[in-house]
Design a protein around this nucleic acid. Structure first.
Lengths: 188, 188, 188, 188
DNA sequence: GATGAATGAGCATTCATTCAT
DNA sequence: CATGAATGAATGCTCATTCAT
């Protein structure tokens, strides 16, 4: 009742924020870094001032889009991969999510790269992603699927490579995942 | 004698061209894509018109810088790596050259990426690079160091990954080379 | 009351637009095509971005100035000439308006010419101008003042000639009007 | 003998000058004012320095092209028109030459206009052109074909009008010549 | 005389960000 | 809170002209 009353509730602002965020994601995906703040505003059906209210800077907007992307990957990893009994399959699923995301959102990656100089995850989500990697790696070492001297940084690099390859359309990144994970197995 | 006699305008022009090219490389390395044509001119000690005489477009300048980079890698691969008796070492040397180049010239990569959307070699130099990869791979398969189902595209992807990791300072790319090459070995 | 209440951003924008347009007209008149967008902005007391907001291109600005000019002529023709009982006088008045406009705005014509390659009216205003010419001609033919084989295109040419002569200060264009209209009379 | 000897005679320079002049005329005709000095040099097969040796300024080059044009008209008027027994025909021939020249060399007119603000003849050639006009007019007044109050300035204006109409493709300028000359006849 | 490389002021246009309403 | 007009620094590129060789 009180919520639906005459005054514009907090919800409206929130709705605008996510609207802008979503639209921005689509635009970046479609046009890469060549997206202007005004474009985002128009596509979202709001004034440009509103965009700036929620994202004080173009950088902030790009960062938000980037974070959402990683959140999606994180969610997928948690819900789909962690539960897989076969460690290798879990790793493949994890990396595959990264690949698919970057492949589908090349333009987004371009914008992020142009803005921050790299495409790596950061902040809370980044930490949790790293954590998942650690778990997977530990499991693999426990069941003998992953070489003992492998560290998260190794997996992190592989993930970075998958991201780069898929977003740049450099060959068959799924094949690369296999290759790289083979390199991560215990060597004779 | 011959030097002063032969000094024709043409010589000066060529000198200017390489001067500009070199300076541009350094500036891009230092500041990435945030380098203006006027900066290059000033740093090279020539008028901006001269820069444009040799490189009719900013794109053209970036392309020239990029090509020179790959030419350097190609030269290194030919002179230093191809002759190494141990195939693995040759491959490492090859990939290492890529890694070092990209690590040292991060800004350059940024400029190239910002300009062309990717950092891959192309044209004649690109083809020759690919050719070297093919030779190395063949050798490795002949001496049993490389898995039989490996193709150049696999090596190409690894090279791309090394480039991406080194220029983005994502972990220890030398370690990655080892990992990836392990993945390229014949698997049990 | 209503004025201050109704004053919305839109009003300001409109004010700016006409301010820019008017100032641009004056500058073009004074300096011909040698007027930079920045000059216009400064003279109008607005930022250069504002000029571009209203006229996305220099061409667009020139076109707007040109159209306004023809609109002025059209207005004059309608209000002052069409009502004159003497057809010859009406024609003279019409052509005179063209002459005066081009004489006063020589620089403007230069800019238009430099931008579009010609100085002819076009679009809606051009069509209406043509229409008035047709009316005048018909009237003249009805009252025996204008030769029967005369068409609008003839009048159009005369108008074009008047414009050219007056803006280039080639002799006494008022005299030319008389001469030309004499040529348009029924010949023995 | 001496002329054909080893040293480059004055003739060479002269040859270059006319080569440049001719080529410039063609280029201006084809592309209007959008012709660069370097284009002219290249098309003439000489260095840009040579162009500047003969025409110290772009303006000078344009002026030379313009003069040549009028010289052509003058020649035509003298050789073809002056001898015609019928004065009206002579006048038509004169104006027709102007019309044809401007129609064929629209681009040239554009360049001249852009450079000097008008397309009128000047200097010696201009004076002689005027002189011919005077002769024709006198003849016409003598044989009763031209109104007594007509002056050269009237013919000059008509010529200017023909030039403007033909170069701007505003209607049928041959028809205009007829109309204007009718206006120049003795009026009842 | 001829050549053409070098020069650099000049200019249109873009776009992130601010702020009055 | 929302709006969108205004801002102006930033930037790639052109082209007439000069001058060393």
């Amino acid at each position: 009742m009180s919520t639906s009353a005459g005054r514009k509730p907090r919800t409206d602002a929130e709705r605008n924020r996510s609207r802008v965020l979503q639209v921005a994601g689509e635009l970046f995906a479609a046009r890469g870094d060549a997206v202007q703040m005004a474009d985002v505003a128009k596509a979202a059906g709001v004034g440009i001032g509103t965009v700036y209210r929620h994202f004080p800077t173009r950088q902030a907007l790009v960062a938000a889009v980037a974070e959402e992307r990683f959140a999606g990957i994180l969610r997928h990893a948690r819900e789909e991969c962690l539960s897989l009994p076969d460690t290798r399959q879990a790793l493949v699923g994890f990396l595959d999510a990264i690949g698919r995301t970057h492949e589908a959102g090349r333009g987004v990656s371009g914008a992020i790269e142009a803005t921050f100089g790299n495409t790596e995850p950061s902040g809370e989500v980044g930490a949790q992603l790293l954590d998942i990697g650690e778990q997977l790696l530990a499991r693999g070492q426990a069941d003998g699927t992953v070489r003992g001297d492998a560290g998260v940084s190794d997996l992190y690099m592989i993930a970075g490579a998958v991201a780069a390859l898929s977003r740049n359309a450099v060959g068959d990144w799924r094949r690369f995942i296999d290759l790289a994970l083979d390199g991560l197995r215990p060597q004779r």
